[in-house]
């Protein structure tokens, strides 16, 4: 390696790939366009196109006599959302989503906090997989498991009977609204299953936001005389809030749009998802189904806008 020779510009690889590479190197925008075209065609044209078509249909109405769609621009379908029976569905769903979100945050917080602050090495992995496996395991199987648990002859009744606490279950079921003939056909059952299915989505963002908190902040608060409750209230909770909001985007949105859980475990009263399903299916009222499905989109849009202002997306 003692002589230096040759040309300064190499001929390099010839042929098609060499020339193509040169072409892309000189025209990076064409390469970018080529890379973006397939995903944009798929998502931007097919998916967004379908969404806009749906949006458009909500401005049509259905002819009450013929049952055919009247292709004239109208807000009549949206007005139908406001009639009491439909508006009740919306209120019921939003209330459920709020309650599920709050309960999920309460149950998720200790798990996330422990995993972020105390779990080390092997335990860190166990906690991580302990959250990931239920999160990713089959949605239907999870619902099915609760059908087994909540059934009258199932494990919960058996367990309470062993503890001589069946009277407690009966008292709860006797309550108005939340009660019913059995847990599996009550709002309580729906609520529990919603929490079970969506709660893992709350743990990971809270854990991520807590991971970023320096442990010595907790000690600093204690050092300054903060009682544990004060430390939680003034230090831990505000720092975890972006994570909680990020997690709530999932729990809230997923509860808002779900139609399978209340159908399998719940009373016969409808949620938004079920209403959409029923309107487009058996009722054949696509415009009303479309108008119903705009509701979660609008609610989530507002929610995301507020979450963004709170800086929740950094915790995703």
């Amino acid at each position: 390696m003692s002589t230096v020779s040759g040309t300064s510009i190499l001929t390099g690889r010839q042929g098609l790939s060499g020339r193509l590479s040169d072409f892309f190197w000189r025209n990076p925008k064409i390469l970018l366009l080529l890379m973006l075209t397939p995903p944009l065609l798929w998502l931007g044209v097919i998916y967004l196109g379908a969404l806009f078509a749906l949006l458009l249909q909500s401005f049509f109405s259905i002819d009450d006599f013929s049952g055919l769609i009247n292709y004239e621009f109208t807000f009549a379908t949206y007005k139908q959302l406001l009639i009491p029976s439909n508006f009740d569905i919306i209120l019921r769903t939003v209330l459920m989503a709020v309650l599920v979100t709050l309960a999920s945050a309460i149950i998720a917080f200790p798990i996330a906090y422990y995993a972020a602050r105390y779990a080390r090495g092997k335990w860190k992995v166990i906690f991580y997989l302990g959250v990931m496996l239920p999160l990713w395991s089959s949605y239907l199987v999870k619902i099915y498991a609760w059908k087994l648990i909540l059934a009258k002859e199932g494990i919960l009744t058996w367990f309470l009977a062993k503890l001589n606490l069946l009277w407690l279950l009966d008292a709860w079921l006797a309550l108005p609204v939340v009660g019913g003939t059995s847990l599996s056909i009550s709002y309580t059952g729906t609520f529990i299953v919603f929490i079970y299915v969506w709660m893992p989505f709350m743990i990971l963002p809270i854990q991520a936001s807590l991971e970023r908190v320096q442990g010595n902040l907790i000690e600093a608060s204690a050092d300054l005389g903060g009682k544990p409750s004060q430390t939680f209230r003034y230090v831990l909770f505000p720092l975890a809030l972006p994570g909680i909001i990020a997690g709530s985007i999932f729990t809230f949105s997923l509860t808002l749009g779900d139609y399978i859980i209340p159908q399998i475990i719940g009373s016969s009263r409808l949620f938004i998802g079920q209403a959409v399903y029923a309107q487009q299916g058996t009722a054949g009222n696509i415009p009303l189904a479309a108008a119903f499905s705009i509701v979660p989109i609008v609610i989530m849009g507002l929610y995301l806008w507020m979450a963004k202002r709170q800086g929740a997306f950094d915790a995703l």
């Binding site: 998502l43 967004l48 779900d258 487009q280 499905s293 989109i297």
Partner: peptide
Amino acid sequence: VSLLVILPIALPGIITGIALRSAFSF
């Protein structure tokens, strides 16, 4: 572009479903 990619899971599945179904029938 990132938003567009995330949208199909950010929106409730039923919306994606019904949008696609009505597009197919259309």
